[in-house]
Design a protein around this nucleic acid. Sequence first.
DNA 1: CCGTTTGTTTATGTATACAAAGTCAGAGGT
DNA 2: ACCTCTGACTTTGTATACATAAACAAACGG
Lengths: 236, 236
Amino acid sequence: MPKAQEEDFLPLRDSVYNKLRQAILTGEYPPGERLMEVHLGDKLGVSRTPIREAIRMLELEGLVTMIPRKGAMVSQITEKNMSDVLEVRRALDILCVQLACERITSEGINELKKARDNFEKAVATNDNRIIAQADVEFHNVIIRATGNDRLISLEDSLSLPMYRYRYEYIKDSSGHDNLVKEHRKIVNAIEKRNPEAAASEAGEHIDNQRRSIMRQIRLEREEETMNALYGKRTIR
Amino acid sequence: MPKAQEEDFLPLRDSVYNKLRQAILTGEYPPGERLMEVHLGDKLGVSRTPIREAIRMLELEGLVTMIPRKGAMVSQITEKNMSDVLEVRRALDILCVQLACERITSEGINELKKARDNFEKAVATNDNRIIAQADVEFHNVIIRATGNDRLISLEDSLSLPMYRYRYEYIKDSSGHDNLVKEHRKIVNAIEKRNPEAAASEAGEHIDNQRRSIMRQIRLEREEETMNALYGKRTIR
DNA sequence: CCGTTTGTTTATGTATACAAAGTCAGAGGT
DNA sequence: ACCTCTGACTTTGTATACATAAACAAACGG
């Protein structure tokens, strides 16, 4: 018998977790949306148990806020909130490049250069989706080069909350020239194993990101205020 | 009506979570110990559901490792593992004092001085439990002074894995004099709002901690090896 | 005697049932 | 007209039952 489907047998809770995470990050479930267990269970065709476990995981990552006996909702994104995350990420990103300077292998450097070139090619396409993807991959190369598993997973969970803003950030960066230049500088510093230079470039890089994201959030907030004043359209 | 018990009505999962966490941190459940749901449920007098949720939480914090379809066990503490955590904490601790320099209020400074004095009094008692407690509180004052909620919760979960070693660390620090001096230096730097000095002191502080913890882990490992060679005694 | 296979046991994965708390609306009284 | 109380309904909290995979052991065959 052929048994066509050699599917991954990952537990339902993980599958649910991925779906919910995706839905939250793409904005399908906007901040403030209540996540009700039976409802989600019906929608995804599973019982409450895996849903509950998935929600617990999302809560620990900060994407979901739970109030006991009340239920779960998609976390509000406040300026303070995002600012806090970025502040931490700044320190950790700098740590990443510093460690990378010490520990990156020659293969790692090749990989990094490839990621850099890939990013520049992506910029040439002018497709923001491709650019964002290449950008993530570039950073991942650096993060992995640290060899610090805890740092890797922290960076991962701290980047999550701002994936929503990544597009706008990419679009923002005037002609993408800055991004390309910054990436090049970082690669050069790491290649020369110069932690100070790398740290300062990485700091600048994330400061720019911060400016863009903050502007974005303020825009959203203004829009919300307008809606509140002049009547809110339904989301969908 | 008096209604004597104004007890916190925290959900069972949180109560279970606290108990398990405590048991792991005190070493009652040593690394590698399997955590079986029915067994724990019987022991704590609750059903599997809250147990499962508590285990999920512990997993996200890194205290427990899960293998699908296999079960959960207390995470092994490896040197690499601990080193990774300390590397991250070093960066975050430095960030903490830097932010504290910028943001601490005058009440905060008073609180900090009080915590410092408290620590010195604790040292005078020569009771390691009291000293450890005062040390945690001292650091918490600084962490809270940053006003960064994300940083606060990260510091919290990153300190967890090494609570097991805190005693030894305290005991180690020759006569506690170093600890007292380091704390004083940090307080002075923050009071003068001198981020560079504060950063360098905080760095030194955690480097010392690192040395002590690493020595401790190596001792444990040696002991394990001896046991493996000459016959292991039962744990209890 | 060893290896393979199969059955039994044990623990997890998932679903569902029941209990209790919270919410909201409507009836009734002031 | 407003406030309050009550009761139904909604939703989470917890327990339990059933399904399925993994581990171990015993039996069978080579």
